[in-house]
Simulated assay, not measured.
Amino acid sequence: MSDGGVRATGVGSFPGDDQRDFDEALAIVLGELAADERGLPFLPEVPGRGATAGLTGRTLGLVAELDADLQPEGWRLTGTSGAPPVDQRRARSLLAQDLDALEERAAGHTGPVKVQVAGPWTLAATVERPRGDKLLADHGARRELAQALAVAVTDHLADLRRRLPVASELVLQLDEPALPAVLAGRVPTASGFGKHRTVHPPEASEALSWVLAAAAEAGATPWVHCCAPDVPIGLLRGAGARGVMLDLDLLDADGHDASAEALEAGETVVLGVVPTTGPLPGDKVLVERVLRWLDLLGLDPERVGGGLVVSPACGLAGSTPAGARHALELAQAVARAVTG
């Protein structure tokens, strides 16, 4: 996918609240990343368009084996069979519309392309059971959700490959911002007075492995993104992630060491270094920061360059279109400068 140099990408979300904003986001992504061999373009998300365009809604729109609808508290499985509820159909239709736009504008693209879906543990911590409370409270329900998501990922990647037949590589990004809280027993119950029980690492790894294996078997490279503290990098790699996407500001000593191990093993580390809030620094500041990080880990930029990707620290939904464009420009500039 790369000539050995550091690459650049984005996490996924962009600002806006209507279809024109999605069109602008797609134009920015393709304009900044598709024409450069160091760039990894992706299907942008514009969650400001409503719950059906957010990470959870987009992913539930893909999961044909489970029916879900929108309640005042958020997404909930219905426990029924038959035609999908109207909200889920809307989410599915909106994603298909976005994929149509990607197919049209990226026709003939021969480089890599990335798409994002919510991971099984973030969904379990977010989506409610038919009888109330999160899926996280029900061992059987969370297994069923993970298995249904694996099927959905297979179908989604087959659709993407049909739409972009000459893309050199498909990357499936599994978004798991809630995973550290799930592992630590920090997810609140519906009442708000308690916490859901801790999910132990073997079960967490198994559910992740079903989805990541489905992506790999569909011919995609599976990555996991988590812009939260205490990212279990070793668990993610053990479950089959060939890339991890991290916020550099949130890494502790264990995270630095685990990132070095991943790079030395020939896997990918996507380093979130471009801020998503406040004034953006110059590219020289960010280049120096990446080089200091590599030096701290005892890694040669030239040797690990092909496995290192630079990105914004997290999504850009809270930015402006101009700010989002500038963030991707900075990521590109940093990627080019680190290894030349």
Rank of each mutant, 00 (worst) to 15 (best):
E264S: 10
L123F: 06
R186P: 04
L208K: 08
L183K: 06
V86A: 15
P232C: 10
E267A: 11
G82M: 07
L102A: 12
A141V: 05
H256L: 13
L291E: 12
L145W: 05
A333L: 05
G278C: 03
E261Q: 14
V334A: 01
A317R: 13
A262P: 00
T339H: 11
T268R: 14
T110M: 12
L30D: 08
A53K: 05
D257I: 04
T52W: 14
A178L: 13
A141C: 07
F42R: 01
V46P: 03
G194N: 09
D3E: 15
G272N: 02
A53E: 10
L271Q: 02
A335S: 11
T320R: 03
A239W: 05
T277Y: 14
V46R: 05
P229M: 10
G194A: 12
D69P: 03
H200K: 15
V29D: 00
R90F: 02
H156N: 14
G278L: 09
R162A: 15
P229Q: 12
G48D: 07
R143F: 08
A148F: 06
V270D: 04
R49S: 02
P15E: 00
G185K: 09
W293Q: 02
P15M: 03
V274H: 00
G266I: 08
E24I: 02
H139S: 15
G16D: 02
V274G: 02
D175L: 08
S259Y: 06
A258L: 09
V304L: 10
P202C: 07
P112V: 09
E176W: 03
P275I: 01
T59I: 11
P201C: 08
G255W: 05
L328S: 02
E24N: 13
L328Y: 01
T78S: 13
T59D: 04
R7T: 15
W210D: 05
A83N: 06
V171D: 02
L308I: 10
T122P: 05
G315A: 01
S319C: 08
S191K: 08
A148T: 09
A228T: 11
P41A: 02
K114A: 10
A215S: 09
